[in-house]
Nucleic acid binder design. Structure first.
Lengths: 241, 241
DNA sequence: TCTATATTTCGTTTCTGAGCGAAGCACAAA
DNA sequence: TTTGTGCTTCGCTCAGAAACGAAATATAGA
């Protein structure tokens, strides 16, 4: 038997406390052990044991910094596996009004591991494909020559990014939209750039992102993405209709 | 919180006995409870309890037939989630020579849920794309007009298959090759047709498939697929080099 | 150096859930 | 009907894993 043994990984991800930690790490940030313990609702000792197991299983990795130890997902595939698991989980139980509002906010724009997801991510991907800056190809996207200036304008230096010939523009399937959006190194760089230039802001909620006014302008100018303004924007901001 | 709760599914799939059952069901066949119990190495009572849980979680479904109850994966997404989990599992531990041989056999041709996977599946998908019978598209393949006769010749009536406008030709990522091959309704129909006309034979091993001489001829005639003859064929048959 | 904070290690307790045998059902074939 | 087989339900046992507090380790700052 040497098909990779999925039971091991599933068991690691299946324990509630560990799952809670992975869920927080899912948005791609590195988080210290103590905070993970709090979000998972367990003691520091317990959390430490869980983190050791996840580490051992290769699901996460650590970066020690001072007396903190920052944990993060080990690689993009982990996020993809979690996403795939989520896709088969019994349909999202909406228990309360605030759940439902939260869901709507996440639907518009959120981080998926280290890249952008939701309606907004699809708009960006589609616009780039329409402009032939990205080519659709087996298993992902291909970055075309025309894309370089657009990404530079958004603060992403694609030349530096793809010096490594193995770096790919990967595609990731969205669980709300069931379409591909941009992941991989380019997706990560893009999200980071958009956050840094203030086009997007992280909200207090784990994965939620907010598109700022300047961000709206930038997306239109650089990528030709027109955010279907009031409707999505209102839903994104959670204002009452 | 209403992201789908992956922990529940992961916990279901993570228990060793249940994982063993899912692994057998992974090749897409429906298998009676007793046999699942035996392959998982547990008593009938234990297996029954596990199957009830998997059923409750929506991972599998039953078809009662006489005094047998045939269990099978509930839907393709389940297989995809398992595949994604497998992709992040620590690299396949090869423990013995027979493991290694088995691996080589599976690498060439195997069933992945209800469709064909392995080198052979890639050859088929690539040949169809090259002939422009399949178009590569966001999240999958698109069946083009030219494909109809080829599939008919292989025993697959694409017209009947796609009366449902929502039926898609999906793509599935191979864990050995990391490329897309044909899954979805078309993939399922294709594998079934190839098995029925004797182009492929199931081997005793769970997911292993064998390409017959007549199958080799058929693939060449219908899809223009040339199996890199001796090398792959030998490895597929497990003969010594 | 000493103190405070972050994290891991150790020792122990607790409890879930996997496991089995026996009994109960359901169906098929006498 | 009776008998035999496949599967599930019931009742119970027990191992393993998760959990915590306390103590040990490591680093930052005073």
């Amino acid at each position: 038997m040497n098909e990779p043994d999925f039971a091991y990984v599933a068991a690691l991800a299946g324990e509630p406390a560990r799952a809670a930690m992975l869920a927080v790490l899912f948005d791609g940030r590195a988080i210290p052990a103590g905070q993970l313990a709090r979000t998972a609702g367990v003691s520091a000792a317990t959390a430490s044991a869980h983190l050791a197991k996840l580490l051992d299983g290769g699901l996460i990795r650590v970066r020690a910094q001072g007396r903190h130890r920052y944990y993060e997902l080990a690689r993009p595939e982990i996020a993809q596996a979690l996403e795939a698991l989520g896709a088969v989980a019994p349909a999202a139980p909406v228990r309360s009004l605030s759940d439902s509002l939260r869901m709507q906010r996440l639907r518009f724009a959120r981080s998926c591991y280290n890249h952008l997801a939701g309606e907004l991510a699809l708009l960006v991907a589609q616009a780039l494909v329409r402009r032939e800056a990205l080519g659709v190809e087996d298993g992902g996207f291909r970055l075309r020559d025309g894309a370089r200036e657009a990404f530079l304008a958004a603060g992403v230096d694609t030349a530096a990014l793809f010096r490594d010939p193995h770096a790919h523009v990967r595609a990731c399937i969205d669980w709300t939209e069931r379409r591909h959006h941009i992941s991989g190194p380019l997706g990560a760089a893009l999200l980071q750039a958009l956050l840094e230039c203030g086009a997007l802001r992280r909200k207090s909620e784990p994965r939620a992102l907010e598109l700022t006014e300047s961000g709206k302008a930038l997306l239109w100018r650089v990528f030709g993405v027109e955010v279907a303004c009031e409707k999505s924007a209102d839903r994104a901001a959670g204002k009452s209709a």
